[in-house]
Amino acid sequence: MPALDLCSHAETALAALVDVMNQETTLLRAGHLREAGKLTPDKARLAQDYVTLARTIQRQSARLAAEAPEALTRLRSGHESLATQMAENLRVLATAKTVTEDVLTDVARMVGQQNRTRTYGTGGQVSADPAASARGLAINRAL
């Protein structure tokens, strides 16, 4: 494949990947987890396409540097932009995961309190059975 065509395909794949990651990050920040999840298949496909092209470019870097140095420089700059976007995306994903786990833990605690006995024991304290906490509550940690 001609050097400029290869670089052009890679730039297009890179721009699309950065765009979909930006959309996902924006949706996650707004708390729209379901909508963000719908972008996952596109993100995975675009990432696979970009990685395939990046490996090809890496193998042919000497030829590309000679035939299309400006395009190669643009790709390197775009790759740095992708790295920045990925770091931000991962930071937002980690925050969303932590918030979700905290909410689910609070819900489980509240459900467990509803099942707790309301009588006093011999020591004058309300006895709590930790095994009764959150019966029947399932948490999906797939996020």
Rank of each mutant, 00 (worst) to 15 (best):
P2C: 00
A3E: 01
L4R: 12
D5A: 14
D5N: 09
H9L: 12
A10V: 00
E11G: 05
E11P: 02
T12P: 01
T12V: 10
L14W: 01
A15Q: 14
L17H: 04
V18Y: 03
M21I: 05
M21F: 04
N22I: 06
R29E: 09
A30Y: 00
H32V: 07
R34K: 10
A36E: 07
A36C: 08
G37W: 10
K38M: 11
T40N: 14
T40L: 11
P41V: 07
D42Y: 08
K43D: 08
A44G: 00
R45A: 12
R55Y: 01
R55K: 09
I57V: 15
R63Y: 06
A66N: 11
A66K: 14
E67H: 06
P69T: 05
A71E: 13
A71T: 01
A71Q: 09
R74I: 06
G78F: 03
H79R: 00
E80D: 14
S81L: 11
S81A: 12
S81F: 03
L82Q: 01
A83E: 11
T84Q: 10
Q85I: 13
M86T: 09
E88T: 10
E88A: 13
R91C: 04
T95D: 15
T95R: 15
T98G: 02
T100R: 11
T100Q: 12
D102N: 13
T105M: 08
T105G: 13
D106T: 12
D106V: 07
D106M: 10
M110G: 01
V111I: 14
V111Q: 08
G112C: 05
Q114H: 08
T117D: 15
Y120P: 01
Y120V: 10
T122Y: 10
G123L: 15
G124K: 14
Q125P: 02
V126Q: 13
D129W: 08
R135A: 12
G136A: 12
L137S: 10
I139L: 09
I139A: 01
I139Y: 06
